[in-house]
Simulated assay, not measured.
Amino acid sequence: MSEANTQPQGPESIEHAHDPEVLQLAAKVFDLARHGDTDTIAAYVDAGVPVNLTNDKGDSLVMLAAYHGHLDTVMALLQRGADADRPNDRGQTPIAGAVFKGEDEIVRALVEHGADPAGGTPSAIDTARMFQKTELLKLFGVE
């Protein structure tokens, strides 16, 4: 079994949720992350929505916010304890997604919160090399 398939099933995953209201709320929260609605998503997390909630593809709220370029949302989630390194079901990490999308400020924020640039497939290091992002490679301690 690959590491990507060992994600916890339970309150942080909607994979087995059957209640239409729960699924509707989860879909709304994922959209908030995608669109960078920082205040609203922070309020939902503060009210009890799991900060490491994942969708049916294993994408966390941090992953979606990072990939779509929402630094403030990423920061709000990290400050509430979100896992900066949590891979999705394909082994992709938020930091590699941010490198791919050219979101250098988000990459720095994730590193500051413990994200491992060598983790995931492809890793952030591999992605930075592919796109010749020398400043990020320096940040990661490789060149």
Rank of each mutant, 00 (worst) to 15 (best):
G48L: 08
D46R: 15
V49K: 01
L61Y: 07
V74E: 00
I106F: 00
E112K: 13
K57Q: 13
A76Q: 09
L71S: 09
R34P: 03
A84M: 07
L139A: 02
R108L: 08
L64F: 03
P117F: 03
G120C: 06
A98T: 09
G119F: 02
K133A: 13
K138A: 14
V45R: 00
H68Y: 14
T6F: 10
A47N: 15
V45E: 02
E143D: 13
P8Q: 14
I14N: 00
T54F: 06
A47L: 11
G102V: 09
E15T: 08
Q79W: 07
M1C: 12
A17G: 02
H68V: 01
A96M: 09
T6A: 13
T73G: 03
P94S: 10
N52K: 13
E105H: 12
H35D: 14
Q9S: 06
G119R: 14
G91N: 07
T127M: 13
L139Y: 04
G69W: 01
T40G: 09
A124S: 07
H113K: 13
D89L: 15
A82D: 02
S2K: 12
H16N: 08
D37N: 09
Q9V: 09
M130C: 05
N88L: 04
G119S: 15
K28W: 05
V22M: 06
D89F: 12
H68P: 00
F131I: 06
A4G: 05
A109P: 09
L61I: 10
F100N: 08
S60V: 12
A115S: 12
T38G: 11
A17Y: 11
T40N: 13
E3Q: 05
Y44H: 15
N55F: 10
T54D: 02
F131V: 05
H18A: 12
G58P: 08
A17W: 15
P122E: 11
A82G: 07
K57P: 00
I125C: 03
D37P: 00
K101E: 14
F30W: 11
D19A: 09
E3P: 00
V29H: 03
A82P: 02
L139P: 03
E135K: 14
S2A: 12
H16W: 09
V142M: 11
R34V: 11
H68A: 11
H113S: 10
L71A: 13
T40A: 15
E15N: 01
N88M: 04
K138W: 10
L136I: 08
D37C: 07
P20G: 04
V49M: 00
Q132D: 15
V74T: 12
L23S: 06
L71R: 09
L25S: 08
I95K: 02
F131H: 12
I14T: 10
G97K: 03
P20K: 03
